[in-house]
Computed example of a mutant assay.
Amino acid sequence: MKSKWLYLLVCCSLLGMLLAPGTYEKAEAAPPGISTNAVGASLVDVASGRVLYSVKGDTPMRIASLTKIMTAIIAIEEGNLDDMVTVSRNAAGKEGSSIYLKLGEKMRLHDMLYGLMLRSGNDAATAIAEHIGGSVDGFVYLMNEKAKMLGMDHSHFTNPSGLDEGEGHRSSPNDMAKLTAYALKNSVFQEIVSTKLKKVPNPNEAWDYSWLNKNKMLSLFEGADGVKTGYTKLAKRCLVSSATRGGQQLVVVTLNDGDDWADHGRLLQYGFTYFPLKTVVKKGDPIEGTNFVAGNTFMYPLAEGETEKLTFRTTLTDPLSTNYRLAERGTVQFSLGGKPIQSIPLYEKGSPLLEKPSQSSFSFQPSQPYKEKWYTQYGFAIRALIEHLFSISGSPWAD
């Protein structure tokens, strides 16, 4: 019996020596793991484009009506929102989700975009494509050119609606997140996708069109402000959502996810909780090691402990260059864990290019290592060890 107690005492003493308060310092706390029901998923910070979470992020998959994000942003950028779009026979007869446009009907492009994004009208997608591209094929060409411009290397579009037509229409979770982050920086796009209910004049009836947004995230998650639902029999449930809190906007993409509403809420909360947007440097802040100041404010989503991994490198501008004549005195390149993440210009203090420069100074001084209470971090481990000891030596409480 004494040997059992002695064995237990020695093990607990050793554990106590290893984990005694004040002996353990945690330099960083990595965000906990998280999973979804999606086949493919991506969580991205809009301002920086940083991918915060990804599963099969670069795998091309069917995206259903998420395609209409590309259709909308091209129409906004390339078209005149006040143009009247005429509905062709091809558009009026398009299968799938519809806003029930009639052959020959005319509708303002801006209004039709609401039908496209709120109700996922395939008839609207076709009418818009024919109006902007001259034909569906012409518009598809624009879609793929836009994808190349944005660096969507795992995407190929064959139609403006997302219907399962052919085998080549694909995109990846990371590509769709990249596209959405780009589109959300357009105020017209942002206004459309954040609208819960839109009424539009209806030339065919005595009442207006009334379109309720299919995106339930606008009501389910505080701060939600977009973006698009999607479904086909082959693609299954697809969803892109966005939300803004504290000046930070995040985008979530899930492809083939049977529980997407819940998963999006969890992923958005995960991003806001563990990757808050932090100010790395403010416009006008002096840059250590130079006589110059930052030309722009730089903010970046950083997990706990990542600040210590930030580094920067300055490069001075050639005095004979055009940039120097335009007041740029150099650049500062920021890196995280050795990977470049942002470059901003350097100006002389008092330069007219600086508007209301802040007075705070900038330097990357590591903060004190985070001290975590040993019993918080290891409480369950200690309990498990004790239970294991009891299981092999018998319970001392019963003897």
Rank of each mutant, 00 (worst) to 15 (best):
L101W: 00
S321K: 12
P357L: 08
G338F: 03
D45E: 13
E348I: 08
L142A: 04
P32T: 09
D260C: 02
L184Q: 02
F221M: 11
D175E: 08
F312Y: 15
P357G: 07
I128E: 01
Q342I: 05
F292L: 15
L118S: 05
R329I: 08
N296Y: 15
L18I: 14
E191N: 14
G338W: 03
L310I: 14
A243R: 00
E130S: 02
L109A: 02
N122Y: 00
K349A: 15
G168R: 12
I76W: 05
G394A: 06
I63D: 00
Y378C: 05
P345A: 08
R170I: 13
V332Q: 05
V193H: 03
L336V: 09
A398I: 13
Q368P: 06
A183S: 11
Q377D: 14
C11Y: 06
V136S: 03
L250K: 00
S172W: 02
S187H: 14
Q333R: 15
L310F: 10
D82Q: 12
A206Q: 14
N202K: 01
S135T: 11
G394S: 06
L320R: 15
G96T: 07
K199D: 11
K146P: 04
N37L: 02
V51M: 13
D259R: 12
V140T: 05
P301M: 11
R170D: 05
S241C: 14
R89Y: 12
L385N: 03
Y209H: 10
